[in-house]
């Protein structure tokens, strides 16, 4: 593929207002959208604000919406678009905009702080943790998260309903709760923190209607809905809505299975 001149629309502005600005910009073989944004900075819009870092799909910084779809700019090849197509790049639309393509993702950091951290097991010191691989496989899938917040951006619970931000942690942090609840050494239950119950009561798991957009946009390919959110919903059912499980736990006098 030889170079060509592409048509771009890039959102420019800040919290007070803004709009889509038209550009025509050179594109060369093998380039990604972030390359084109950098070329715009270098040649036509030196004050264009964009957050980026690794350019390898691992830092989660360059999240944006490309033709209306939440994507990492560094992982979106220009070859997926036709030469005639106008490529529209906007900031994430679920979060307050700072300037141009940069948004304030502080919501996510607030939600992260609300999730109780890993509770070390009693009598096991740092460096003494021993776990079987099959016991940590599930949690390790969730540890692939690069915190790009594309799942938080696309989730309609907060994207379309600002008022739900107070009650709903979002898929990334519900997945964090699932990761800890499935962790073989997490001793939260012994310390009085019931992650299953609080996922529903305090982090808004019930708002999730499992429409899988978080899974669709995840650049790490984590099966957020099937492997984290739905299992967490089932665990919450164990605690709150299943009288048989409740009865079983009373008879056997144990709070959680194996």
């Amino acid at each position: 593929m030889s170079g060509y001149e592409a048509r771009f629309k890039v959102w420019r502005g800040d919290a007070h207002g803004g709009g889509l600005e038209d550009f025509r910009v050179e594109v060369n073989e093998g380039e990604v959208v972030l390359d084109i944004i950098h070329r715009l900075q270098a040649t036509q819009a030196p004050d264009l604000a964009v957050r980026w870092n690794c350019k390898a799909g691992k830092c989660g910084s360059c999240s944006a919406e490309i033709n209306g779809r939440p994507r990492l700019m560094c992982m979106t090849r220009m070859s997926v678009f036709t030469r005639e197509e106008t490529v529209t790049v906007t900031p994430l639309r679920a979060f307050p905009v700072v300037r141009d393509l940069v948004t304030d993702v502080g919501f996510n950091y607030r939600k992260a702080r609300e999730v109780p951290a890993f509770v070390p097991p009693a009598g096991v010191g740092p460096g003494e943790y021993r776990m079987m691989q099959e016991d940590v496989d599930r949690s390790q899938e969730f540890r692939k998260c690069i915190e790009c917040f594309l799942c938080q951006d696309t989730c309609h619970v907060v994207r379309d309903h600002e008022e739900n931000k107070a009650a709903f942690a979002g898929p990334r942090f519900l997945m964090r709760i699932a990761e800890l609840d499935m962790h073989p050494l997490d001793a939260a239950a012994e310390s009085g923190v019931d992650r299953k119950r609080t996922a529903q009561d305090e982090h808004g798991l019930g708002y999730c209607n499992i429409t899988k957009c978080c899974t669709e946009v995840c650049p790490e390919g984590i099966k957020i809905t099937d492997n984290a959110l739905i299992p967490l919903k089932e665990r919450a059912v164990d605690r709150k809505y299943d009288p048989l499980v409740w009865l079983g736990s009373k008879i056997r006098r144990r709070s959680s299975a194996g």
Partner: peptide, 20 residues
Amino acid sequence: PPTTERHPRAGGVRAAGRAA
């Protein structure tokens, strides 16, 4: 900035503070 749209307009993706 180019032709601008101003806040506030409505809820959701059009909520105040988000990209106009």
